[in-house]
C-alpha cells in the first residue's frame, strides 16, 4: 500500500492506495499520526484506490479518527469503493466513519 498526503485550504487529504490489511494498517495509523503532528487536524482519507479493507484496516481508520478528534479536529473518508463500503456496513461503522463522494466535499459545509 502507498500513502501520500496533500495539505489543502481547510483540510489535509491522505491517499491510501492498495490493500488496507493487517500489514498496512499500522502504517496508515503512523502516517496519519504524523500528518496530525504536522499541524493538520481535519483529515480526509481518500479511499478511491483502496480496493480492499479488512477489520485491521477498519481499526486503523477508527484509531486515526480518534487521534484527529483528540487534536480538536475530525477525520472523514471519501470515494469509498464497494468492498470497503461492504465492510463498513456489515460492522455498522458506516454510522461512525462518515463517507463523502469526493475528498473536496468532506469538509465543504463546515
Amino acid at each position: 500500500m502507498e500513502f501520500s498526503y496533500e495539505v489543502k485550504d481547510t483540510y489535509a487529504e491522505v491517499k491510501a492506495d492498495g490493500r488496507l490489511n493487517m500489514v498496512s494498517a499500522p502504517k496508515l495509523r503512523e502516517f496519519v499520526t504524523d500528518v496530525i503532528a504536522g499541524g493538520s487536524n481535519r483529515i480526509v482519507v481518500n479511499l478511491e484506490h483502496t480496493a480492499f479493507m479488512d477489520s485491521s484496516g477498519l481499526g486503523a481508520l477508527i484509531g486515526c479518527l480518534k487521534a484527529a478528534r483528540q487534536a480538536g479536529g475530525d477525520l472523514r473518508i471519501a470515494a469509498v469503493q464497494p468492498q470497503v463500503n461492504m465492510v463498513l456496513k456489515l460492522t455498522s461503522m458506516d454510522k461512525v466513519l462518515t463517507a463523502y463522494p469526493t475528498a473536496g466535499e468532506a469538509f465543504s459545509n463546515d
Binding site: 479488512d54 477489520s55 477498519l58 481499526g59 477508527i62 480518534k66 456489515l90 460492522t91 455498522s92
Partner: peptide, 14 residues
C-alpha cells in the same frame, strides 16, 4: 461486535 470506538475485535463477526 465491540464498542464502536474499539480498534479491534470485529474479525469474527465480519
Amino acid at each position: 461486535l465491540p464498542r464502536e470506538d474499539a480498534e479491534s475485535g470485529r474479525g469474527l463477526a465480519l
